[in-house]
């Protein structure tokens, strides 16, 4: 009798039992650190001094008045905003161009993907050499057309744009890849119908391609935004946040406090703010995606 009950219970609850390992993993690796982060952000924790005391919202108040924090936030916003926007337009252009039947199309596609295959550190080191004003290749090429004396990542004015340029070089291929996949998933019938109706190329692009490409666009933008918000490697290698703090980003600033100065509480509080910002931005895209009904189809 008992055995039958157990068997029945197991059968009824099998779906929950099978979920247990996943839930445990998720709790351990995601939920626990998140709760710990919230608690840590309300404390002063310093590994160096061994200090550990509850301070309430003091960390957040200190952050609000921390000029360097705001500077880092501003730089990150510019970096992400400009970088991702340009990557999107270049990526879209390339995807549309290379979805046409061209000679050597596959070679082009493969070549285009190489930048994103390189580790960001390698890219940073290479660009550091390329950017050397005296004998870097870019200035040499620009010199041929009469443009001289740009000092790239070493000048306060051009430092951030120079880093954004590196990001665009490395990550446009990623945009291109997702958008190309999106383009090839669009069925041909609407185009045929449009042609019968006498639509122009531009009209077809505007009223068929773009609307049908929206899910791919949203996913590409979402992934790139989340990734770019935590930009670290290139800045760390190429400028160290300088000159004159012109390229200090959030991740770099958090890293300094967390790992170099051992201010774990302060660093966690800043990470928490970053997390909230990232979630807010992602939610906007995820809601749009849901509205597009790609998930519910």
């Amino acid at each position: 009798m008992k055995q039958i009950n157990l068997a029945r219970w197991t059968e009824r609850n099998l779906k929950y039992l099978l979920l247990v390992p996943t839930v445990v993993l998720l709790l351990g690796l995601t939920v626990y650190p998140l709760i710990y982060a919230v608690i840590a952000s309300l404390h002063t924790i310093n590994i160096r001094t061994g200090e550990q005391s509850f301070v309430g919202l003091k960390n957040f108040i200190a952050i609000a008045t921390d000029k360097q924090f705001w500077n880092a936030l501003k730089n990150t916003a510019i970096y992400t905003g400009v970088g991702v926007t340009l990557e999107f337009f270049f990526g879209l252009g390339l995807a549309v161009f290379l979805s046409n039947r061209l000679v050597g199309r596959n070679v082009f596609r493969a070549l285009l993907l190489t930048p994103m295959m390189l580790p960001p550190i390698v890219v940073a080191v290479i660009f550091k050499i390329i950017y050397i004003p005296d004998f870097g290749i870019i200035n040499w090429l620009l010199g041929l057309v009469g443009i001289k004396g740009i000092i790239w990542e070493a000048s306060v004015k051009t430092a951030l744009p120079s880093l954004i340029l590196v990001d665009i070089w490395e990550w446009t291929p990623f945009m291109f890849l997702i958008l190309l996949a999106g383009l090839q998933a669009i069925p041909l019938d609407p185009y045929e119908a449009a042609m019968v109706d006498g639509a122009t190329q531009f009209q077809m692009f505007r009223h068929i391609t773009i609307p049908l490409l929206i899910p791919a666009i949203l996913i590409a933008l979402l992934l790139r935004l989340m990734d770019t918000l935590r930009i670290f490697d290139q800045v760390f290698i190429m400028t160290g946040g300088g000159p004159a703090n012109a390229t200090e980003t959030m991740s770099l600033y958090i890293y300094r406090h967390g790992f170099r100065f051992s201010n774990i509480g302060y660093a966690t509080a800043m990470s928490f703010i970053m997390l909230v910002l990232t979630v807010m931005i992602s939610n906007f895209f995820i809601n749009r995606l849901k509205a597009e009904e790609v998930f519910t189809q």
Binding site: D134, G149, A154
Partner: peptide, 21 residues
Amino acid sequence: SPPGAESFNAQQLATHMLMGT
């Protein structure tokens, strides 16, 4: 110093010395 010194690290110093510049 050469242009770009604002962002030079030890490696760029060595490069300039090695190139004789």
